[in-house]
Each structure stands twice: as C-alpha cells, then as structure tokens.
Design a protein around this nucleic acid. Structure first.
Length: 205
DNA sequence: ACGCTGATGAAG
DNA sequence: TTCATCAGCGTT
C-alpha cells in the first residue's frame, strides 16, 4: 500500500520521507529535485514546515567554494559521510545553515537549503524571528534555521528521523526553475549552482 | 556599505 | 597563540 492509499485520508508521513538513496546521487540532480519538497522540523511537540524554493550545490574537494575544498576536518566531516544526513554549520558568529549531504560516502558534497515557503507552524516561526512579515520568515539560509530552531545539535542527524526530515513532493518542471551563481562566495562563481523556483516571493534576496 | 558575532583552520 | 576568513542578516 502506498501513502496515498491508506483510506483514512491521513498522509503516511513516514513513508513519504525521502529515502537515503534520493540523496545518494549526482548533487546537480538532487539540488534541483529538492525544490518543491517539504522540510519538516518537530520542535517542542509542534511540526514546523516549509516548501523548499531555493537551494545551492557544493560539490567535492575540487569546488573551491565547498567547505570540503580544504580537505577532511572536524567541521567538514559530515560532508564526507553517508548521504541523507544534515550538515549544519555556524557562520558569521550568529547564524546556522542547513545542508543535506549528497553523493556516496567518501565523496564530500551537500545541498544548502536557502529558502522555504512557510506551510505549518507559522505563528511559532514568526515569534522566533521577531514577528516579521511572512515573506521575511524563511527567505534565507540563516533565517530559516532561526525560524525552525535548527542549530548544531542537529548536525549529522538523519534526515529520515523524527526531529528533522524532508517529505517527497512533486518535482518542479524544468522551465519553472531558475539558476544563478551561488550567493556570498568569492570563489567558484563561474558555476551557476544556485537554483530557485522562478517568481516565488519566498526566494531570498 | 557596514557592523554584528564567534567558529574554523592555517600559520608560527 | 594570533590571524584572516566567512555559503548571513539587519540597519544605514
């Protein structure tokens, strides 16, 4: 029985979680297919969720913008590990960023989740963000982590677990996906490895 | 355009 | 131990 055929009208959330093999593929495929999927965070008994509308790919030790370009260190270890786990890092002294680890174990790569379209738990997320407008809640990698209470305690946790996971959803049509160089980096700008849903107001600035 | 803020890794 | 760097954000 699949998740749409339970007969009780309640989606089978567990079975809808993206499996590990979704992530164990070419990062340039995963970075596009993650658009439209649903990021879910269980926090203090409440489910906070949002539809992924912007992502970036960081691919291997030869990508100068990838943290793994300096090799295996304590910080970058999650990217060298098995796919389907979270890589959460602290940046600029104030913010966290969430990545989904991709590719086979031993090949360091990940997809940075840059923006969400808020779905559930909007009241809680607004309060955590200091009550900004809905379009200013999760339109940036640091903002969405603040809204969803994602910090280093979730580093290296499975994305098929109970506290943080990504649900399957319809893959976006290619013509609705835009791309550009990645944001905030000074190297690797020749690669247009940022992807976003065109004309979506929840994409970052 | 700039200041906030602290982890990170390289240099010494 | 110092130092430069930094995949961000908010305010100016």
């Amino acid at each position: 029985m699949n998740s749409h055929a339970r007969g009780d009208g309640i989606p089978n959330i567990r079975e809808n979680r993206l499996p590990r093999h979704f992530y164990q593929r070419d990062t340039l495929i995963v970075v596009r297919e993650l658009l439209g999927k649903i990021l879910v965070r269980r926090f203090e008994g409440e489910l906070l969720s949002g539809r992924i509308v912007e992502t970036e790919a960081y691919i291997g030790e030869d990508d100068p913008a990838c943290h793994a370009a300096r090799g295996l260190t304590p910080r970058t270890r999650p990217m060298f590990g098995p796919p389907g786990k979270a890589y959460v890092y602290f940046i600029y002294g104030m913010y966290y960023c969430l990545n989904a680890v991709t590719e086979r174990e031993g090949f360091p790569a990940a997809v940075l989740i840059r923006a969400l379209e808020p779905l559930a738990g909007i009241e809680t997320m607004s309060a955590r963000r200091g009550s900004p407008r809905p379009t200013n809640l999760t339109n940036g990698p640091g903002k969405l982590c603040q809204a969803m209470a994602i910090d280093k305690s979730l580093n290296e946790t499975s994305l098929q677990g109970e506290d943080l996971y990504i649900l399957d959803g319809p893959t976006l049509a290619a013509e609705t996906i835009g791309s550009s160089p990645r944001i905030g980096i000074k190297v690797g700008t020749e690669n247009p490895w940022r992807f976003f849903e065109k004309a979506n107001p929840f994409v970052s600035k």
